[in-house]
Simulated scan of single mutants.
Amino acid sequence: MKGSLIFGAIALFPAVISAKASPPAAIVEYCRQKGPLPTGFCKSPTCAQTLRSAELESLLRRAFLECFAHDEIHLDSFVKYQINSLETGINLFEKIYQDKKESLLLQGRQSPSSPSREWWNCPQNNSPCKWLALENNNAPKKLTPTGREGMILPNPNQPIPNYVYPFDMWVTKLAGGQFTLYINGKQIEPEDSGLDFFIPAGTAADDVWYKSETGAMIHFYGSCSTYTPCLGRKVVPWTRGVSHKRLGQDGEIYIGQYDDDLVLTIADTETTSEQYTVFADGVKLGSTHGRLTLGDEKYKRSNIRMIDVGSGAAGALRSIANDGFWGSFKIPRGAKKITIVDDSSDFDFAFEYRLDTTCSC
Rank of each mutant, 00 (worst) to 15 (best):
A26Y: 06
G215T: 06
S127N: 11
A204R: 13
K300D: 06
T88Y: 04
I218N: 01
H70W: 06
T88K: 07
V16D: 05
F198A: 04
G312C: 00
M217W: 04
S77P: 00
Q82D: 11
S319E: 03
Y81S: 15
F220A: 00
P45N: 07
T271L: 10
N322V: 02
K284M: 14
A19R: 03
G150Q: 13
F197M: 12
V278P: 03
I338C: 10
A280C: 11
A205Y: 01
R109M: 14
T265S: 12
Q275N: 02
R318Q: 12
S302P: 10
F93I: 03
D308L: 06
N138Y: 04
K100G: 15
A26W: 10
A63R: 12
I266P: 11
F198V: 05
G290Q: 04
F351P: 13
G256H: 14
Q98S: 07
G177P: 00
E213T: 05
P128L: 02
Q33P: 03
Y30V: 09
E191Y: 04
N91C: 10
Y165C: 03
I307A: 04
A267Q: 01
A11N: 08
Y97Q: 08
G176M: 04
S225D: 01
S113N: 11
G150D: 04
I331E: 00
K234F: 02
S328Y: 05
R318M: 12
K95P: 07
R291G: 07
Y163G: 03
C359A: 15
A335V: 11
D76Q: 15
I152V: 14
R301K: 14
Q257C: 05
L37V: 09
E66V: 08
C361T: 14
I96V: 15
T339Y: 00
L92Q: 13
L12Y: 08
T271K: 13
M217A: 11
S223L: 01
R305H: 05
I183H: 02
G241A: 10
Q124G: 01
N121W: 13
K34S: 08
D99S: 13
E189G: 07
H244T: 06
P123T: 01
H244P: 00
G147I: 06
L195H: 11
N91H: 10
A335C: 15
K43S: 15
P190A: 10
V341Y: 00
E270H: 14
S328K: 08
P237D: 07
K34Q: 07
I320S: 07
E72L: 12
F167K: 00
K234N: 10
I255D: 00
P159V: 12
D343W: 06
S344L: 11
E55P: 04
S243W: 04
V283E: 14
Y227T: 12
L174D: 09
T358I: 10
P45L: 03
Q49E: 14
K337V: 11
L231R: 14
R233L: 09
K211N: 15
I27K: 11
Y353F: 14
K186P: 00
G222A: 11
I218Q: 05
N137V: 05
T46L: 15
Q178P: 07
G215E: 03
S127T: 14
Q110M: 15
E29W: 04
I152G: 07
K34T: 05
A205P: 01
D207I: 02
A350E: 01
P123M: 04
I73D: 12
F220I: 01
V242M: 10
